[in-house]
């Protein structure tokens, strides 16, 4: 029966895995939020030139498994980049960057739908007030419309945050040492897979639980002015 001392090295490795997972989560979420928001705004426009490619993008990203997108980027990405950017250089696509790219691209499609829905739920008068005041369009979105859009979209965005946290485990299949990879390796080496996989699960649960107070703070901030104080 191995003692806990024997495991301590593995648990330290798991902390390294947690760090990779968290980095993946932050990058993927920020990128999918940025792309998804821009796409969501474009989706409200009427122009067919934009709508058709957007519709195709969303159908692909919501219809194809994330794992497949990841494999396409990881195994096909370097060839595509080399072809696009010149034969005289070669490009390596790292497991980390292909993981971030795949997860961000897939979730950008979901963020796009969320943001688009929230924009349509904003009162028309908010847009008209921006228009008649002559606010430059970029600033109107930045300061007036998007803060209200994110307020409406927040519950959905918190879901996407947690989905991304879990999807980061896919990168274990392209050889990145994230939390799942480390747990699997440690489990194999010690013949105690159950212990390490359970511990890994607890890490995921802890991380999603931590998002609750964060989300609540964000919600309070976005709700500024929404309810009469003292009412």
């Amino acid at each position: 029966m191995p003692t806990s001392v024997d495991y301590s090295g593995y648990f330290q490795q798991m902390l390294g895995g947690v760090s990779i997972t968290v980095q993946m989560l932050l990058w993927s979420f920020v990128i999918s939020l940025a792309i998804g928001t821009v796409f969501g705004i474009l989706r409200t426009g009427a122009s067919g030139v934009v709508q058709i490619p957007l519709t195709i993008y969303i159908s692909i990203m919501t219809g194809v498994p994330s794992l497949l997108i990841l494999f396409i980027i990881y195994y096909g990405g370097s060839g595509v980049l080399t072809a696009l950017l010149g034969y005289d250089r070669s490009f390596d696509v790292s497991p980390f960057s292909s993981g971030v790219a795949a997860i961000a691209m897939v979730n950008a499609a979901y963020v796009c739908d969320l943001v688009h829905g929230a924009i349509r739920n904003l009162p028309k008068g908010q847009f008209e007030a921006c228009t008649v005041l002559g606010l430059p369009r970029f600033h109107a979105w930045r300061l007036i419309l998007l803060p209200q859009v994110f307020r409406l979209a927040l519950p959905g965005l918190v879901n996407i945050w947690i989905i991304i946290l879990k999807e980061t485990s896919l990168v274990s299949l392209v050889g990145l040492s994230d939390l799942v990879t480390v747990a699997k390796t440690a489990g194999g080496a010690t013949s105690e897979p159950f212990v390490f996989l359970i511990v890994a699960s607890f890490f995921y649960i802890a991380m999603s639980t931590l998002t609750v107070p964060l989300a609540n703070r964000l919600e309070r901030r976005l709700n500024r002015g929404q309810t009469p104080v003292g009412a």
């Binding site: 009162p123 008068g125 008209e128 005041l133 430059p136 007036i144 209200q148 500024r224």
Partner: peptide, 23 residues
């Protein structure tokens, strides 16, 4: 407008200064 259309997430003063500031 009939429905006022004030910006709900910023103060009364900020509602008034916003356009001046951006322009």
């Amino acid at each position: 407008f009939q429905q006022f259309n004030l910006f709900p997430h910023i103060t009364v003063l900020q509602n008034c200064t916003l356009a001046l500031r951006l322009l």
